[in-house]
Design a protein around this nucleic acid. Sequence first.
DNA 1: GTCCTATGCTGAACCGCGTTCAATTGTGAG
DNA 2: CTCACAATTGAACGCGGTTCAGCATAGGAC
Lengths: 201, 201
Amino acid sequence: MAGKVAERRKVLREDLINIAEATIARDGLSGLRARDLATQAGCALGAIYNVFGDLNDLVLAVNARTFHALGTDVAAALAQAPQDPTDQLIVMGQAYHSFAAEHHNLWRALFDVERAEGEAAPDWYLAEMGQLFTYIHDPLASLNPKMTQADLLLLTKALFSSVHGIVLLGLDEASAGVRSHNIDAMISLILKQMTAPKSLW
Amino acid sequence: MAGKVAERRKVLREDLINIAEATIARDGLSGLRARDLATQAGCALGAIYNVFGDLNDLVLAVNARTFHALGTDVAAALAQAPQDPTDQLIVMGQAYHSFAAEHHNLWRALFDVERAEGEAAPDWYLAEMGQLFTYIHDPLASLNPKMTQADLLLLTKALFSSVHGIVLLGLDEASAGVRSHNIDAMISLILKQMTAPKSLW
DNA sequence: GTCCTATGCTGAACCGCGTTCAATTGTGAG
DNA sequence: CTCACAATTGAACGCGGTTCAGCATAGGAC
C-alpha cells in the first residue's frame, strides 16, 4: 500500500503537536518532556525523532499554530471593530493582549523557543508576521495619507513593538497584582496619543 | 583565625560572579555550565554550592550587577541631557537601547532567568526598577503637571514598556538587517508623539 | 504460502548537566 | 599535639534529549 507509512506519520505528527500544545499550555515550554510525550502519544521515544528533527522542531510546529490562531483572533477583532482607524488599532491591541493572557504559556513559547544564531526565521513566521503588520499598517496609512512607506513601516513596527512590550511586562507582573484593565488602558493610551492629529511628520 | 572561611568564600563569590558575567556576555545564559565555572575558578564543583544555592542564584547576582550598570548608564545619559523633558526621555530611551545592544547577552539574561511562579522579585530588582521609573516619571510629571499620580504611573509604565518592546524586537531581528538607527528612530518617534502637547487628559 | 530484503520502528544506552552528600581535609580551641 | 567539629571535595545520582543497533514489518518474487 502506497503512502501507508506517510499516513501513519502524519497522524502521529498531528497527535504529537496536539499533545505538545496541551502540555505547553498547561505546564509551559519547560514542562515539555520527550518521554512524557511518547507515553501520552502511545508511541516509542524514538518515534518522535522519525517525525521531527528534535523537540525544538515540534515546538516550532506548535508555535505555527499558536501564531496562526493569534492572527485569526486579531483579524476577528478587526472585523467587528468600528470604522475609526484609531479604534481599530486599539481593538487589535486589546485582542493581542487578550490572546496573550488567555494562552499565556503558548504565547510565551512563541518567543522563548530556541532560535539558532544566524538562522533565518521560518516562512510561516514571516507570513503571519506580515499579515499582522498589514492589519496595523492599513489604519495607519489612512490616518497618515502623506507619510512615506518607509515611515509607515517604522511606525507600524514601533506600535506593534510598544503593544508587545506593554503586554509582555504587564503579564509578567500580572501575578504581582497588576490588573488586566491597566494593560488595556496603557494600550489605549499609547495608541490614542500616537494617532492623535498633532502630527510630527 | 577568625573569618578565614568567610573571607575565602567572599573571594570565591566575587570570582564566580566575574566568571559567570564574562561567560554569559560571551556565550549567553545557556552557555553557563557549572563544571566550566568550577574549572575556571579553580575550585571544586561542589564549592559553587557552598556560595550560591544553585546556578540560578549566581545568575541573579550577575543580573543585579547588570541592572545596576544599566541604571548607571541611563543616569549618566540623563545627566548630560538637555533640560527639555522630551529630550531627556529620548536620551534615556536611547541609552537603554545602547546598553541592550552593547551587552546583549547580559541584558537578555535579565529577563530570561528562571523566576519561580509565585516568588516575589528580589529587593535589588525592585530598587533598581524604581530608580529607572523615577528617571522617567520626573520629566513626565513636569510635562503633565495636572495629571494624577495614578495616571502618571500608568504613563511611566507604558512608555518604559514601549521602549523595552521596541528594543527587544529590534535587537531580535538585528541580525536580519534591522539597523540600529531605526531602533533609535522608533524610540524617538514614540516618545516625541507621546509627549506632544495634544493632551488627551 | 513462503522466503527474502529493504525499510521502518523501538527503547535501552549514551551523553551532558545540575545537584547532592559520604568521605576527606582543614581549623582552632583546649 | 589532639580532638571534635566544620568546610570542602568530586564521584555519583537523577533527569532529560538524542541516537542507533537490533528487531519487526511490509511487500515483491516465486
